[in-house]
Design a protein around this nucleic acid. Structure first.
Ligand SMILES: NC(=O)c1ccc[n+]([C@@H]2O[C@H](COP(=O)([O-])OP(=O)(O)OC[C@H]3O[C@@H](n4cnc5c(N)ncnc54)[C@H](O)[C@@H]3O)[C@@H](O)[C@H]2O)c1
Ligand SMILES: NC(=O)c1ccc[n+]([C@@H]2O[C@H](COP(=O)([O-])OP(=O)(O)OC[C@H]3O[C@@H](n4cnc5c(N)ncnc54)[C@H](O)[C@@H]3O)[C@@H](O)[C@H]2O)c1
Lengths: 205, 205
DNA sequence: TATAATATGTTACAAAGATCACAAAAATAA
DNA sequence: TTATTTTTGTGATCTTTGTAACATATTATA
């Protein structure tokens, strides 16, 4: 994906900028944002430049204006609705999380095969899988989170894509096989920890 | 990090290979593994080659032997101990997770400032932060997970690094500032979802 | 008005990573 | 034994991403 990393950084910048508004900061420089987000000032300017965001020489960028411009790029003017499949450990952690709102996202429905999990016990209604096609269509959902066991992840993925889902955040430790028009992002917590281990181990040698 | 991606892939390969042993498969080819992990066969061979793992022309690689070789590279012969700071939504999801064992990892202790969370209510003992230095030293821990709110993440990070932690998996949506000898891996769930949204939005236009 | 200082924006350069192409080896078939 | 097929291993190439350099614009100051 060509500009995936750039978009990821824009999202980071946006988060910082929102902090700045809370602190009453109105104007910033590329190196301010760079330091805060751990990239180089040139990178910040280049990212902005790529999307036609221009700053002022000697005066940097206006925070509010910058947020507006990034919002426009990221289509952050409407709330982005997401569904969740699998109400286990991870699923529950996600639906209890308050941080989505600030970022204009909302988990609008969850699904689980286990009848004990279904109903309105949680902040968000939990439906049986049979309801999925209907809700995806009604709410016009494009993105979903897979938080089911490895053994059922592929079939959940198939169900989602058959019903028009185009983006999936996958927690199951399997590589999902699907059309390349579908975008899949794997969250591999164990993998990340194993990689960390490798490098922290090495440094002692 | 020079070989970070290679290591990440080795970890993926290992996971697949373990599946193969469970299915009774003894011998595999680079393209088998490639298909399963979503990379190219050349990449697989190159990754192995980089660590001196050689296959057999026309006969591919022996599964068990390959696992052994990858284990040796990843130091997977001993259980890797990890600590967790923050017993909220994410923290609880992690300690209830059974999947760490299969990957030779173990969360050996958790920490929280909230006395209500402390004690032996969970699978893993939860201590006050004051106990952290002692336990890190006693158990010889190198890696930690930060699952505390954004507002306290930096101070937890400082505490960890002061006590010899060298690798951190961070769930808080902030860029932690620390020495560059410390390896930090950020898990940005909201960020990933926002990026997904961006691309799935675009495709409709 | 001229000069200095400070940030931006862009072009050129470098590094990392992945892909491609193909030679070499091993097994099988003729 | 020779030819054919299959699969590995790696040098060359392409792509992507990030870094560095520098010219340009703006503001402040003398
Ligand atoms: N919990 C963690 O810390 C953690 C860490 C790393 C990876 N993961 C991965 O994340 C995924 C979820 O983990 P978890 O701990 O939440 O699992 P879990 O077992 O606690 O929950 C899985 C949930 O999915 C539901 N489910 C099963 N099949 C389903 C289907 N076909 N359709 C809908 N719902 C279905 C189950 O009823 C259950 O509620 C797993 O693949 C796991 O390997 C979890
Ligand atoms: N839950 C999610 O789905 C989710 C999604 C994205 C990001 N995150 C991020 O992950 C982090 C954890 O999220 P959560 O939902 O589990 O939060 P939470 O509020 O449920 O839990 C935080 C826990 O940390 C403890 N804590 C606070 N300060 C501490 C300190 N200084 N030392 C030790 N413990 C301390 C609290 O007592 C609490 O138990 C947050 O930074 C959050 O932004 C969470």
């Amino acid at each position: 994906m060509l500009i995936y990393k750039t978009i990821t950084r824009l999202i980071q910048y946006r988060l910082c900028l929102i902090h700045y508004t809370e602190l009453g900061i109105e104007q910033i420089f590329s190196y301010t944002l760079a330091k805060e987000t751990g990239v180089s000032p040139e990178q910040v300017r280049k990212d902005f430049s790529q999307f036609g965001i221009r700053g002022n020489k000697k005066a940097g960028y206006n925070v509010l204006q910058l947020i507006e411009q990034i919002n426009a790029i990221l289509s952050k003017n409407t709330v982005q609705k997401i569904i969740l499949v699998g109400m286990g450990n991870i699923g529950k952690a996600l639906i209890h999380y308050k941080g989505f709102e600030n970022r204009n996202m909302q988990i609008v429905a969850a699904f689980d095969i286990d009848p004990a999990k279904q109903g309105r016990k949680y902040r968000i209604p939990v439906y049986p899988l049979q309801k999925l096609p209907q809700i995806v269509r009604r709410e016009d959902i494009s993105n979903a989170i897979i938080a089911v066991p490895e053994s059922t992840a592929q079939q959940v993925c198939d169900l989602l894509t058959e019903n028009g889902i185009r983006g999936i955040l996958n927690f199951a430790p399997v590589i999902l096989k699907t059309s390349d028009r579908i975008m899949i992002k794997n969250i591999s917590l164990c993998g990340e920890l194993e990689a960390l281990s490798y490098f922290t181990q090495r440094t002692t040698v």
